[in-house]
Design a protein around this nucleic acid. Structure first.
Lengths: 201, 201
DNA sequence: ACGAAAAGCGAATGATCACTAGGTTTTCAC
DNA sequence: GTGAAAACCTAGTGATCATTCGCTTTTCGT
């Protein structure tokens, strides 16, 4: 069944190299944003030339997409539990916020890029729009399951609660990045959720 | 008392020209951030050359400072009332959020620049750090006055409430910029405040 | 109405950017 | 071990950037 000439696979160390590049990409795009972050600096951090880097990622946009994908992978495990208990899902999100406090680079990446990507012509605009829709429906579903169990304060709308929780998480990140001592992101999120629910967190 | 040679004043239309430049600056720094926004494009929008613009503002950093100052001026009237009623202060802030919904450019400027300025070497870093300290203490004071009047839900800490309110406002801006139909920033803020107080908003 | 300062311009400077062309070196399947 | 693809390099290209220099034009106090 070998129809075409076999295109040969990657070298053994290629995957690791690409990973190194992506991690440097997180650092650089975090500090300077996508538009101001340069491929040259990313390449420098990995110890290779610009052209060498561009052998792995055809262009800057493709590199950004791969960086965002890696970031999602790193966070994914906290948002599994599809059919789980609503409260457990919310607790998982707060665990994710706690984890974020240990990886300032990822927080910086998210804050910088999501702000930059509000511009409709930004290469990551569609990504962030889709992401917010997904996260929003994910959290709404969790609050809806809690509401069904009577775990929500009467009058609280699950969708509004979800929007508020996302806003608190994003807003706390900016304050935290400006002064990491001024604020505990997880505690801030907990405080908000406690105002909405009738059970222990 | 004319000690030195009088340095001559500006022309009559100079103030207006500078204002035009600053408004174009808001537009450009909103869309592309400070680092990626170019003086050339700002000059183009005002219909003058780069060099002509730099006659009014010595360099890009100075232009940014002036743009931020203008933005503060435009918002100032909502945050007067120094010794006022705490509840009135909070209501004023929500009025400010309502006003913000009518000036997407200013919201974009704030979101984009505050995220960019989390980097310690950003020319507006100090500005945003100072601003958050000031806004924080301003809102805390308002909640403290409300607490003294028994208008706060028992157990609510004025400082935490202030941090939360700022986070909600900032976070809602990002979501709103990504999709202006998805969210009512003022309503989002009101919902949060209602969870904290015992009186009508 | 004149003179000096303010306002503005064209052109250059040197830096940095993403990306490409065309080559050499490294890896690895056979 | 050999050959071909993958990995990587040097050296460009053309674009854009902030800033400067020297010059002309506009304004306006006297």
């Amino acid at each position: 069944m070998t129809i075409t000439g076999k295109p040969r696979g990657n070298y053994a160390k290629t995957a690791g190299r690409r990973r190194e590049i992506l991690e440097a990409g997180i650092e650089v795009f975090s500090a300077g944003g996508f538009r101001s972050g340069s491929i040259r600096e990313i390449a420098e951090r990995v110890g290779m030339s610009q052209a060498g880097l561009l052998h792995h990622f055809a262009n800057k946009n493709e590199l950004l997409a791969a960086v965002l994908e890696l970031r999602d992978d790193l966070s994914r495990e906290y948002t599994t539990g599809e059919e789980e208990d609503g409260l457990e899902t919310i607790r998982g999100l707060i665990k994710l916020v706690e984890y974020n406090s240990s990886v300032p680079g990822l927080v910086e990446l998210h804050t910088t890029l999501s702000a930059e990507a509000t511009a409709p012509d930004h290469p990551a605009h569609e990504y962030f729009v889709r992401r917010y829709v997904w996260v929003s429906s994910f959290i709404t579903a969790a609050f809806e399951r809690m509401k069904a169990k009577g775990q929500l304060v009467p009058g609280v709308d699950p969708e509004a609660a979800a929007r508020g929780m996302i806003a608190i998480m994003d807003g706390a990140q900016v304050q935290w990045l400006l002064d990491k001592e001024s604020l505990d992101m997880a505690e801030e999120t907990r405080m908000f959720v406690r105002l909405l629910i009738t059970v222990d967190l």
